[in-house]
Design a protein around this nucleic acid. Structure first.
Lengths: 249, 249
DNA sequence: CTTGCTAGTGGCACTCCGTGCCGTTAGCAT
DNA sequence: ATGCTAACGGCACGGAGTGCCACTAGCAAG
C-alpha cells in the first residue's frame, strides 16, 4: 500500500538476453537444490521463485511447468542441432552427421558437470522428471529421423522410411548411454572416447555409406555363419577400414 | 438429503476383475471421444467421469492422471512382457526374443483398431499425450535393455553395457515404425509382414548370434569398400541365410 | 432373515499448478 | 524531463490430483 515500502530494487534481469539467461540459470539452480533438499513434490513453485528472488508469476515466464525448471533450454539446443544438420555436407555419411550433431547435446551436459549430476540424481528418482527428460530426447530423435529419412531417400534406399527412425533411435540411445556412463563414472569416464566407440558401433549397424567413393576397393571377408554378428561386423569394418582415404573419427 | 432420491442404482463395477476392466474401458472410450470432440484441455475430468456415469473421484481410482485415461494398461502389458522374457529360451537370439516380446504390444494395438486410430489422432495432436506415450515406450525399452544386457553379458560381449540400450532402442523404434505405418495406412498395411521386415533389419544390425551352432558353415563375402552398408549387410545375410537349420521368421 | 464385514464409491475440502489480467516500474529513447 | 516499452508481481480463477469419510452394494456367518 504505502509508496515507500523499502524492498530490494533488484534490476530487471529479463531486459537483456544475458539477463534472461542469468535469471533462468538462477531459477534452475534454485529448483534443483530445493528438489534435492526437500523433495520434488514438497517443493512448490512459490518456493523456487522465492529462492531466486522473483515472483511466482515470473517463474512461469521462464518455464512452461515446474518440471521444466531443472532442464536446459532444449528449444535452443534443438535449433542448433537443426542448423548443424541443415548445414551439413551432403557427401558425408548421414549417420555420422547425426552423431556429430548429437555431440552438441553431450558437450552441453559435459560443460556443467555440477548441474548435470544433480539433475541426473533427480531424473533417476522422480518419475515425472524422468518422463519430461524422455520426452525431450524424443524431440531430438524426431529431428534426427526427419534428416535421416531425407538423406536415405536421396541415396535411393527403398527402406529409408523404416531405417531412419531406427537409426535415429540408435543414435539417441548411444548418446544417452555415454552420458549416463559419464554421470555414473564420477569423472573417471572419458565421455568423448566412449562416444567415439558408441557412435562407431551405431554407424557400423546403420550407416548406408555412399557408393563409388574414391579409394574404392574390393575386400574378401571369410566368415562363419555362426559367428557373432558384432564380430562379423567388426571384422568387416576392419577390412574396409584399411582404406587410406577415410579418417573418420 | 432425502433418502429416497431416485438415482440410477448401477451395480458396482469394480467388485470383480472383469467389472474393473469394463469400467476402465468405458472411461477410456469416454475420454477419447470427448477429447476428440471438444478438445483435450477443454474437457475436464468431471466431464469424462460423468460420461461414464461415475464420480470424479472414481476416475482417479482407475487412472493416475487425466492423460492416462486414453492409454491401455501398460502395467499389465509390461508384466506380460517381463514374463515372456523371463520364460524365454536362452538358446535363442536375445534380440529375436525381444522382438517377439514386443509383438505382444503390437498385437494389443492391432486388436482394437478403432480405439488405436483415435488414440493416434490424439497423440499426434496433443503434446502432453504424446509425452505420456513416449514415456511409456521408454518403460518397455528399459525392460528390454535389462534383458539384453544380461544376455549379452552372459554371451561374453565386452560391449554388452553399450549394445544393450542401443539394441533395445532399435527394437522399440522398429515397433513404433510398424505401428505408425499401420495406423496411417488405413487398413492397407500388413502390420505383421512389416514387423517381420523391421525386426529382421534390427536383428541384422544388433544380433550377436551364438557361435558354434549346428549347420556352421563358412561363407565368403566379396565386397567393395564403398558399397552401401545396408547392401553389404543384405548380401551377407543372404549368404548366411542359405543355412537350412534356421527358419527364423 | 438378520447382522456384521468388506471394499468400491462419491462427495467434500484442500493444495498446488498454470494462466489471464492488469497495475506498476525499470530502463531506454527522444 | 517525458513518454514508451516490456518485464515484473500480485490477484483471482479454473482445474488436477489427493486425503478423508460417510455410504452402500455384496458377501459371509450365525
Amino acid at each position: 500500500m504505502s509508496v515507500d515500502t523499502q524492498q530490494a530494487p533488484r534490476p530487471r534481469a529479463g531486459r537483456t538476453v544475458a539477463g534472461r539467461r542469468r535469471l533462468r540459470g538462477a531459477l534452475t539452480r534454485a529448483a534443483i537444490d530445493l528438489f534435492l533438499e526437500r523433495g520434488y513434490d514438497t517443493t512448490t513453485v512459490d518456493d523456487i521463485a522465492a529462492a531466486a528472488g522473483v515472483g511466482r508469476r515470473t517463474f512461469f515466464r521462464y518455464f512452461r511447468s515446474k518440471e521444466d525448471a531443472i532442464f536446459p533450454n532444449h528449444d535452443e539446443l534443438l535449433v542448433d542441432i537443426e542448423r548443424r544438420l541443415a548445414d551439413s555436407d551432403d557427401e558425408r555419411d548421414p549417420v555420422e552427421t547425426v552423431c556429430d550433431a548429437v555431440r552438441l547435446v553431450l558437450d552441453f551436459y559435459l560443460r556443467d558437470p555440477e548441474v548435470s549430476l544433480k539433475r541426473y540424481a533427480l531424473t533417476r528418482t522422480v518419475t515425472s522428471l524422468r518422463d519430461k527428460e524422455v520426452a525431450s530426447v524424443d524431440r531430438y530423435q524426431r529431428v534426427f529421423t526427419r534428416y535421416l529419412r531425407a538423406r536415405f531417400q536421396a541415396a535411393g534406399d527403398p527402406l529409408a522410411e523404416m531405417r531412419a527412425p531406427i537409426a535415429a533411435a540408435a543414435v539417441a540411445a548411444a548418446h544417452n548411454h555415454v552420458l549416463r556412463q559419464w554421470l555414473r563414472g564420477d569423472g573417471a569416464v572419458d565421455a568423448h572416447a566412449l562416444a567415439d566407440q558408441a557412435f562407431a558401433t551405431v554407424r557400423l549397424a546403420h550407416s548406408p555409406a555412399t557408393p563409388g567413393e574414391p579409394g574404392d576397393r574390393t575386400v574378401v571377408a571369410v566368415l562363419r555363419t555362426s559367428a557373432p554378428a558384432p564380430e562379423v561386423a567388426e571384422r568387416i569394418t576392419k577390412a574396409l577400414a584399411r582404406n587410406p582415404h577415410d579418417d573418420a573419427r
